[in-house]
Design a protein around this nucleic acid. Structure first.
Lengths: 188, 188
DNA sequence: CAGCTATTGAACATTGTGTTCAGTAACGTA
DNA sequence: TACGTTACTGAACACAATGTTCAATAGCTG
């Protein structure tokens, strides 16, 4: 790929992340982005149609990685309880080493589109994952759709809370908290 | 209060809800609102500073009602398990009878500010509520902040899922689903 | 080096914002 | 009912951002 294209794309993506952390996705204008990335207006529109288009292209990379984690987790052995939502430890590790990016995506300043896309991505992961889990037997049969939404909500909540924390809790501990509340709800 | 003011405020609020259901909060312009509400531009800005200002004023009413539900629930008798998050049945009932409004606020088309405000409101409720609940004893001590975020996330998730459902599930059933996954996580 | 292609910067029409102000209508009260 | 007060109107305004166009220029790949 043309080196100029690479540099432009990188600069724009970095500008977006930085600006999201500073002012939140919604407040960002294309003007802001091209100034920060130091590129011409026409250049931006040669690459992306909208601000949103840029965002989606960034989330595509994230998606690929998450799907990779899931495939790896599904290949592992263990009890059904251990294997369900098996991608979660890797996800928390990943978030830990890309704190800035995750905080920009999932944090308080984020935008509706960002959160919506992230939810959709995670929902896909969780749905696939739960295929292996038999429906919980209890007084109340939980609808599968509700369970998926619930797990995604719990995951995003814990993730947000964890990243906002001053005292840096290690990722495996944050994951343990998530699994304690989410996995409990799924089984029995 | 002046009748003219009342009519203007009502028209504007109704326009907002309708437009949120049609195109989502983010896509709405002040232009849209004043056209739909059929008022002059200057009139809008005489009442509200921004689009966001209008939104917040609408959410204030909701907040009052939710706090009322909580006070009523706290006054009731019952086990700790029953009493915790005791406002939830009333909340689901309320959402059921104001489906449109809730769908506009909490639904897929909503905006980040809307969701953020709603989260904050619910977080306040939940935090107050959980003061009565002793910390769960288990292998892992759950941080209180994490629990609050988790419960709010679960509530919003189940609410969204429920309102999106075609088959109209009765509110008490939706509430049962919520309590089944959320209360379980808090106790034991 | 040659040929291709990405980038530039400036200009443009369009849309929305938030403010101002004089004129008009509707209101509450006496 | 009549009066004084207050809210609404509609038009105009400066400003900021959007997304497009195009000729000129710079940088890349082979």
């Amino acid at each position: 790929m043309d080196r100029r294209v690479q540099r432009t794309r990188l600069a724009v993506h970095q500008a977006l992340i930085a600006l999201m952390l500073e002012k939140g996705y919604d407040a960002i204008t294309v003007q802001d982005i091209i100034e920060r990335a130091n590129i011409g207006r026409a250049t931006f529109y040669a690459h992306y149609q909208h601000k949103e288009d840029l965002l989606r292209s960034g989330l595509k990379d994230l998606r690929k990685q998450l799907l990779g984690y899931q495939r790896a987790a599904l290949a592992k052995a263990g009890s059904a309880r251990e294997r369900s939502l098996g991608f979660s430890p890797a996800l928390f590790e990943h978030a830990y080493s890309h704190r800035d990016t995750y905080q920009a995506i999932v944090g308080r300043r984020s935008g509706a589109i960002v959160l919506g896309e992230m939810r959709a991505m995670l929902a896909e992961l969780v749905r696939d994952d739960l295929k292996a889990v038999p429906p919980a037997k209890g007084v109340l049969e939980l609808p599968r759709g509700a369970v998926v939404e619930f797990v995604v909500g719990a995951l995003m909540s814990i993730l947000t809370w964890w990243l906002d924390q001053k005292a840096s809790i290690p990722p495996h501990e944050a994951d343990a908290i998530f699994r304690r509340v989410a996995v409990n709800a799924i089984f029995e």
